[in-house]
């Protein structure tokens, strides 16, 4: 399985990459870690004439706290850097966990967080954590930039709002309020290395009186794209968390899921597991939020 021939372009800035992308259009592909792109090229599902490698663009491999309380993640930040980052572990444990179970050690050393999202796989491990943390996707093109909330980024399997002349400059993730807990749950056939059969992320922020001030639930691998369960988030907000309330939210998540049957799991199993994993993720989020509040 050799990789078909192409011309390799090595831009020195993101701006230069955009110019190359604009001039070669759909005949080109942007490459970050290459762990998805080169496989697709080997299988001939993608045959770009030009590969624009971000490898030689300096200073885009970063995970850094910005003044104003946002974590910024650059386009060449590897999944292993996300796993090892202390700020991510402290403030975004669901993302830390999801990144740590994405593929294998070698792939995490090569693949980037932003690349994982730009592929727009419905089952991408890191999509649902980024959704519960209200991640903003900063997209640049040669004549400007736009900011898209991550839940609007995905359009369908392999499809995102990214247009040909655009690329993702960075993710901005606001640091959650103090009394916030969050959690990531995943089921896959062959331990955690495997592509997720079902994944769920949840986040709860508590008021001083113990009621929920903010709730987020996101599901992966159970719809054509990762989805937020706004209906369930609404019934949680303003209420005191109880077992019954979490059961109701989990049932809504199950109803909102529209999975397919494939080699990883049947649609029925996925629906049943969405309910279980949502409940588990809410329980764990509540426990973490309660601990932080006290």
């Amino acid at each position: 399985m050799s990789i078909p021939k192409f011309t390799y372009l090595a831009p020195k800035t993101l701006k230069e990459a955009l110019i190359m992308r604009a001039s070669h259009g759909s005949k080109s592909s942007i490459m970050a870690g290459g762990t998805d792109l080169l496989i697709k090229m080997g299988l001939r599902t993608l045959q770009p004439e030009f590969v624009i490698g971000l490898n030689s663009v300096p200073e885009i491999d970063y995970i850094t706290l910005r003044p104003g309380g946002e974590l910024a993640i650059g386009p060449m930040a590897k999944l292993s850097a996300v796993v090892e980052d202390a700020e991510v572990e402290k403030n975004f444990p669901a993302l830390s966990e999801a990144a740590s179970v994405t593929a294998t050690v070698q792939i995490r050393n090569m693949g980037t967080l932003i690349g994982n999202i730009c592929n727009a796989s419905p089952s991408a491990d890191n999509a649902t954590p980024l959704m519960i943390y209200d991640t903003k996707v900063v997209i640049i093109r040669s004549d400007g930039e736009r900011v898209v909330p991550i839940e609007e980024f995905f359009k369908g399997p392999g499809k995102s709002v990214l247009e040909t002349g655009e690329l993702v400059k960075e993710f901005l993730i606001p640091i959650p309020e103090k009394s916030t807990g969050s959690n990531y749950q995943k089921v896959s056939t062959r331990s955690k290395v495997d592509i997720a059969g079902i994944c769920v992320s949840a986040l709860l922020t508590l008021n001083n009186d113990g009621t929920v001030s903010k709730a987020r639930i996101a599901l992966g691998a159970v719809a054509p794209k990762p989805i937020r369960v706004v209906k369930a988030e609404k019934i949680l907000t303003g209420k005191t968390p109880t077992k019954e309330l979490f059961n109701d939210a989990a049932k809504i998540a199950r109803e909102e899921a529209s999975p397919i049957s494939d080699m990883r799991a049947s649609a029925e199993y996925r629906k049943a597991m969405v309910e279980v994993l949502t409940r588990r993720a809410l329980d764990a989020s509540l426990a973490a939020a309660t601990k932080k509040k006290n």
Partner: peptide
């Protein structure tokens, strides 16, 4: 990138050399 038979270290990190371009 599944089997790891091609694993080498690049700057101390393990990578799949089958998914690494020599130019990079």
């Amino acid at each position: 990138g599944d089997c790891g038979a091609c694993t080498v270290l690049v700057n101390g990190k393990s990578v799949c050399s089958c998914l690494t371009l020599a130019v990079e």
